[in-house]
Every structure is written in C-alpha cells, then in structure tokens.
Amino acid sequence: MRVLEFFRSKPDSTATVAKERLQIIVAHQRSNRGSSALDALLPKMQRDLLEVVRKYVEIDNEQVKMRVEKEGNCEVLEVNITLPEGSVNKNE
C-alpha cells in the first residue's frame, strides 16, 4: 500500500481546493452584481416598447425579447422584436 501511495500524485491541499471554489463562486456573484439596476428596469422598458411598436404593428407580448449582456466593461442591451408576416400596414 505504502508504495502505491508514494507513486500516486499528491492531492491538492484543502486550502487550495477552498481557494479555487471561492474564486468560481465569487466571480459568479460579481457577474450578477453589475447589471442589477438595468435588470430591474427591463420589464417596464419592455412594456413601453410594446406600446410604441403596437402603434404601427400588431404584435404579441412575447414578440419583444430583451436581455442585458456584459462584455468587458460595458453592458449591451439586446432587443429582439419579431414581426409577424404581412403585419405592416402600408397605407399608413
């Protein structure tokens, strides 16, 4: 047994394991932090957008999709509005 243990690679110390686990969880906590202000505004912004689009096009609630993405130091607000075919009234 002793000989086998000698050849087996030494396991990481528990402190090293703790550090690695913490680095992951802390990075995750921090990525959730920054955009929270904008996240809180999204539902209202989505309603307002729907209202504006509906002045011109018939669309459902689910056809406006929004999300915030972090890219380095800046945040990107992605808005996706799907228009149903032939929905735009050309007379207006």
């Binding site: 110390s13 528990t14 402190a15 090293t16 703790a18």
Partner: peptide
C-alpha cells in the same frame, strides 16, 4: 503552513 487553512494572500 500545513495547507489546511486559506492564507492571507489567498
């Protein structure tokens, strides 16, 4: 030192 506590540096 024994590796069973996070160091100040960590």
């Amino acid at each position: 030192d024994r590796g069973d506590m996070l160091s100040a540096k960590d």
